[in-house]
């Protein structure tokens, strides 16, 4: 466990000394801030119920593409620079390494998300939003972040090229976000298959969170996907040991 924290700490530190992290966070806040400001204007003009729903959905769409950028170097770089072998031969266990890297990614993710709490606070200052859906939406944001980061980390373990890792991660996230569920909306599909595809569809699980409900199905799904990808990432690292 101590190893895990040490790895996470080291990774977060290396994130924070690079200018890229600040650029990514600033760009993210700029884009989501602009989007929120536009929806705020819409809410004021059409006397809509104040909501964070669309901004949270928008932020998750950005993360479908941005999460692999956060995770791409975590394992791929170690491998390219040859430090992975070093780590693998050290007394650090594989799962500690994976979890440490994952926690570092999640920490950076939180650094991006926490400033956006200014948005619902703005709504509170100029109106009276329903905080239930806001908080459940942010819980969804956290769980979805975990899913998207675990896919990105898995992609980073597959290759030593960061760009390839990022592309693979985005592809994986898009697969979960869009392509798995898309056939379910095909009119002719059998309801049972459609149901299973919707169960697998990441996007379908977002609706309950942002509309203000906590459903065990969505929470179990997000945790399952995260655990699964972290597990197979660990197995891949393990494979490095016995591969020639």
């Amino acid at each position: 466990m101590r190893n895990l924290f040490a790895i996470a700490k080291r990774e977060v530190q290396s994130y924070l000394v690079s200018p890229v992290a600040y650029l990514v966070i600033a760009a993210f806040l700029l884009v989501s801030g602009l989007y929120f400001w536009l929806t705020l204007g819409w809410m004021v003009q059409y006397r809509e119920v104040p909501t964070m729903r669309y901004t949270i959905e928008f932020m998750i769409v950005i993360f479908v593409f941005a999460a692999p950028l956060l995770t791409m170097r975590l394992l791929a770089q170690e491998r390219r620079m040859g430090t992975l072998e070093l780590v693998l031969t050290s007394p650090v266990q594989d799962w500690e390494l994976v979890m440490g890297k994952f926690c570092a990614g999640l920490a950076l993710y939180l650094m991006m998300v926490i400033p956006t709490l200014l948005f619902p606070l703005t709504l509170e200052v100029f109106g009276n939003p329903d905080w239930g859906p806001v908080l459940s939406g942010y819980l969804g944001l956290l769980l979805f972040g975990a899913v998207l980061l675990s896919v990105g980390l898995f992609a980073s373990a597959l290759t030593q090229n960061q760009i390839v890792a990022a592309v693979l991660g985005v592809a994986g996230n898009l697969l979960l976000w869009f392509f798995v569920g898309a056939p379910a909306y095909n009119p002719g599909i059998s309801p049972r298959v459609a149901h299973i595809l919707r169960m697998l569809d990441l996007r379908a699980h977002l609706q309950t969170f942002v509309s203000g409900a906590l459903d065990t199905r969505d929470i179990v799904y997000c945790l399952s996907v995260t655990v699964f990808f972290l597990f197979i990432t660990t197995r891949i690292l393990e494979a490095r040991r016995w591969r020639a």
Partner: peptide, 22 residues
């Protein structure tokens, strides 16, 4: 994990956190 998700799907539990239980 599939069994877990299947069970969750069969026995869903939902908390409505909206203020007016909409």
């Amino acid at each position: 994990l599939s069994v877990g998700n299947f069970l969750a799907d069969r026995h869903p539990y939902r908390i409505d956190v909206t203020a007016n239980r909409s």
